[in-house]
Design a binder for these strands. Structure first.
Length: 269
DNA sequence: CGGCATGTTGCGCA
DNA sequence: TTGCGCAACATGCC
């Protein structure tokens, strides 16, 4: 379930469970997810440590430990964190588990991941993927100047540029699709052909899409209600603005829906 | 059975 | 060098 809003929900859950807690056990049951580390690395770095902060940047989570070491979590396509009682049996697709104590209470925090595209890393320093992340729209804020500069440097399709984690962090296929619909810009537009006004609309489109997905999750408690999407997954349905049937194309191997009538193309191809 | 999937990386080609 | 398609990763679900 992972794009920025989902990862933010995961961050809040981990913060409630881990902040101020001490890790008494850490076990990973899947080398793919721990790669290039191992369950031994994970427990060696995490066990005995207290958690000082649970942060998110884009789709990455960073758990800061009291000796300066850190845990990084990326949810891939199907990753999920849950909390459980220490005696509860393993959940389906459970790949790693932490046990923590906070005051007198003991909790078990578990990482689930069906497809195993996610990552769980224990390191002494920040990893490259974290360092190379662009500004996060929620924690760093999104400003038109910065985005305009980033988009202006490349002739790529604007949708691909928005999903480039080094330009802006946390935008995936859903948010990019939704934001461009809100902005009324064709996803195939060249990113360097957007006017400053266009970039302003993209920024508002992103804020709008992020905000409504976060709210939808806060309300529903879990899954992303498809109801909260304006165009994503709605090919063939009428555009909510103009009624035109929503188109579906494939860009960079990803399904892309848009309204061919009210999302205008910038830059011919 | 076929098609699709919220992510990332690496390869080959133009 | 840049942009882009595509396969791979490993699996679930409709």
């Amino acid at each position: 379930m992972p794009e920025l809003p989902d990862v933010e929900m995961a961050r809040r859950l981990l913060e409630r469970a881990l902040l101020g807690a001490r890790i008494t056990s850490a076990v990973g049951s899947d080398r793919v997810i721990l790669r290039p580390g191992s369950s031994r690395t994970l427990s060696r770095i995490a066990v005995g440590r207290a958690v000082q902060a649970v942060e998110r940047r884009g789709k990455w989570l960073r758990v800061m430990l009291d000796d300066g070491a850190r845990l990084f979590s990326h949810l891939g396509m199907t990753g999920e964190w849950i909390t459980a009682g220490v005696d509860e049996p393993s959940a389906r697709f459970e790949r790693a588990r932490f046990e923590v104590t906070k005051g007198r209470s003991r909790r078990s925090i578990r990482y689930l991941d069906a497809r195993r595209f996610g990552r769980l890393l224990a390191t002494k320093d920040d990893i490259a993927a974290w360092r190379e992340l662009g500004p996060d729209p929620l924690t760093d804020g999104l400003d038109v100047e910065t985005l305009a500069a980033a988009l202006g440097r490349s002739a790529r399709r604007v949708k691909d540029a928005l999903m480039d984690q080094t330009l802006v962090a946390g935008i995936g296929n859903i948010l990019a699709t939704e934001a461009l619909w809100h902005a009324r810009i064709d996803p195939r537009s060249r990113s360097d052909r957007l006017t400053p006004k266009d970039v302003g609309r993209v920024v508002r489109g992103l804020r709008n899409a992020i905000e409504r997905q976060l709210t939808a999750r806060e309300k529903a408690g879990g899954d992303e209600p498809r109801e909260s999407f304006a165009v994503y997954g709605r090919s063939g349905e009428p555009c909510r603005r103009c009624g035109t049937s929503i188109s579906r194309i494939v860009l960079g191997g990803r399904g892309t829906t848009f309204c061919a009538h009210c999302q205008e193309r910038r830059g011919a191809r």
